[in-house]
Design a protein around this nucleic acid. Structure first.
Lengths: 203, 203
DNA sequence: CGCGACGTTGATTTGCCTCAACGATTGTGG
DNA sequence: CCACAATCGTTGAGGCAAATCAACGTCGCG
């Protein structure tokens, strides 16, 4: 239909689903009609604490983060989302009640989003998506479980190394402050870790 | 069929599902045929690391735990499961590959379990269960997210207090060693925390 | 140019671990 | 039923990981 963007970006989303479970043309049509394209500028909020999370978001390009802010002015980052990642406050979204989390854009970011009503309708008209989203949440659950284990059992240095190994493509895009807030340490200490592992790594 | 146990225990499971989404009699029949009752003695393993997680488990009574053991002989507990809780290694189960986690019984425990093949068949014959299990995983994801935030942002004392508030019924059933391994601290330090909060709590 | 955000470094403090010793409780075999 | 071992919870001394606070150099940007 109105594909007057450089490329038609919905094809990215369709291909994403197709790689999980092949879609029929009706289902592709449904996705195209239910998901809406939107762009956010750097530092712009997608969700602010106290508001209800109205959308499930799929990132086309750019980078978002979801975090909780503390009384003392700090933040703790739950997740970054770059190309082909999903991000939302799952609890606020499904219960449609105020969120305690924030989502904002670290870079200029394009996303596709769907509302809860549209998602429910999608589930009804194409039950295949129940399965798709179940699998998505299962994968997210497994990742979160790994991260919790790491946080319980390892030092900050181990966690940093794991982060570097697992998300090398994020390293260059994020400031040290962001990474520290994700790892659960202070930027100062992260700086000391980096220095130490450089000394140890090179001969 | 052979319901020569005190009560027919499958009704507990049926009621559990019914409370989420009402089941038809065919669906109840399916559940009854697919889930199998089993009992484990204290200290018995349901899943041992290196093995493939073959079942999704629903606890009728008793108490299980899932944990990872460390090189140094310690363990880190991911989750306890008492009455009406689910427990399995979601990753090993769905990919049918060896697990790095252990599940064992802290008390004598009765469960219902279903294999992956039976669960897939259940999804096919009653797609409603795709939704049910999606919702289950979503809820588990949300809880895990809260716990991760707590671990990143709070002291051991705060985490202990949160645990007491959230799972008061577990406090009496678990040894301090179990609770410490869940909180990610040593039993010694937990002892010191308890002492401190007693002193602070009373006048 | 000057300001503000970012990264680094050092001194000090705090949270939690390690190790060791000691009662209390549990359980088990004689 | 008792004796013994094993496990559990407590307490203290000492050490390490990471936070806090403060100062400073760098860089991008208005």
């Amino acid at each position: 239909m109105n594909s007057n963007k450089k490329d038609n970006p919905v094809s990215v989303l369709l291909n994403y689903f197709d790689r999980m479970i092949e879609l029929s043309s009706e289902e592709r049509e449904l996705v195209t009609s239910k998901f809406h394209w939107r762009q956010y500028k750097k530092h712009q909020f997608i969700l602010q604490e106290g508001d209800i999370c109205r959308h499930f978001n799929f990132v086309l390009n750019g980078c978002l983060r979801i975090y909780k802010s503390t009384e003392s002015g700090g933040i703790h980052i739950l997740q970054f989302a770059v190309e082909n990642w999903w991000i939302n406050d799952i609890n606020s979204f499904h219960k449609q009640k105020p969120s305690v989390l924030n989502i904002d854009a670290i870079e200029e970011t394009e996303i596709f989003q769907i509302t809860l009503d549209d998602l429910k309708d999608l589930y009804l008209k194409a039950p295949k998506f129940e399965r798709i989203f179940r699998i998505l949440v299962e994968n997210a659950y497994f990742k979160l479980q790994e991260r919790l284990l790491l946080n319980i059992s390892s030092t900050a240095e181990d966690r940093y190394c794991y982060f570097c190994d697992t998300y090398p493509y994020l390293l260059q895009r994020l400031s040290q402050i962001q990474i520290a807030a994700y790892l659960g340490i202070t930027p100062e200490f992260l700086s000391k870790i980096k220095k130490k592992s450089l000394l140890g790594g090179a001969s």
